[in-house]
Design a protein around this nucleic acid. Sequence first.
DNA 1: AATTACAAACTGACCGGTCAGTTAGTAGCA
DNA 2: TGCTACTAACTGACCGGTCAGTTTGTAATT
Lengths: 216, 216
Amino acid sequence: MNTKSPTEPKFRRRAEARPDEVLDAALSLFTEKGYARTTVDQVAKRAGFSKGTVYLYFASKEAILEGLVQRTVEPIAEAAFETMTDYRGDPRPVLAQFLRAMAQALADSKTRAVVMIILQEAPAAPNISALFRKAVLGRALPAVTALLAQGVAGGHIRAIDPELTARSVLGPVIGHLLLSEIFRIRPEGGLQMDRLVENHLTLLFAGLEPDTGGAP
Amino acid sequence: MNTKSPTEPKFRRRAEARPDEVLDAALSLFTEKGYARTTVDQVAKRAGFSKGTVYLYFASKEAILEGLVQRTVEPIAEAAFETMTDYRGDPRPVLAQFLRAMAQALADSKTRAVVMIILQEAPAAPNISALFRKAVLGRALPAVTALLAQGVAGGHIRAIDPELTARSVLGPVIGHLLLSEIFRIRPEGGLQMDRLVENHLTLLFAGLEPDTGGAP
DNA sequence: AATTACAAACTGACCGGTCAGTTAGTAGCA
DNA sequence: TGCTACTAACTGACCGGTCAGTTTGTAATT
């Protein structure tokens, strides 16, 4: 990530830009070594100034993490979820739209990195967990569940459990992300989140097809 | 698990039990507060003795973590994967067997806890990551992929991408685990991994049904 | 007596957070 | 234009505390 060319003047005097510079530096370091193993001094150094300055803009190390999550998660959360809530009809087109949007968001490596940091730190940092739950999960899961329930009720899809099926809709994307980011296990040629989603959608849509009495 | 080799020690004090006691204590603390925020002293205290003793049996704090992963993961890894490799025919019964075994393994809260710790620490601890990859993922994924490929080739299932579909098979289970353990989002009445797997299997099996020209 | 198993005290490095002091920029004045 | 006075931005040494890992002494066992 950036880090600014070494020819920059020593004093920059642009207080408004500082918080974002801290967050950028923190993101790259947290990604490399994890939150716990990164020191505030390292963050400051990478951002191009000293530790004291960091504390002019963030109250604590954890506040940096919170800022990072907020900056990444909020715009994504705002962009979605409204279409789904009152939809009536076959849920599949909406699911496709949703999963493709998700794939697109996760195509950005910064977003991916923040999501990974959240997954790693959430168990030990309750406010991070709460933030993500409130902004993303608490909205996405009920939306998908309601969409599926409505589809079942209307006979558009097979009679499955909507709440559990929501996991079958979203799980593969999360699993793919984890395999790739944590264990470096990914298809030849990179993450290919798009291809994963398309493959998943064919399978999922066929699976959701109402049972018309086919033979197993 | 357990050890307790009946052949070796006739005298000695109670030293043989120590490593497992350390691992048990470490597991509960790592689960509560995470690896980084747990001190070796706390592990020793919970196990009922002092820090120095821990270092009689483990070379470092990270070695404790490795021991924990090894103790949990190896028996699981050994128990499976062989059935799949040379199978010919409709892969669905084997997939069902596999997912149910996975659900059963994850029903044990200790196993679940270790898996979560792995997911959290793997990015920053390469040998943990490698251990799990070698013992579990590096075997499970190719096995499922090969099974699917064989099913496609034999016309038993829809022509999907086997490698990507492996994610659709396993992802929901992982996603369910994550939602429950990290964000405390779970169905009423607990984890219900069994019900998730059964619901997932209906959906998945219908989705894998070869396309015989049904209605969209 | 020799060995083993352990507790307790200790060491040294590290790190989050603070703060007294320094520097860069700017407004006012001549 | 040059000077003074002031402020916001920034630095880096430092402090208090923590913690992984080590050493030493001792009680029990053989």
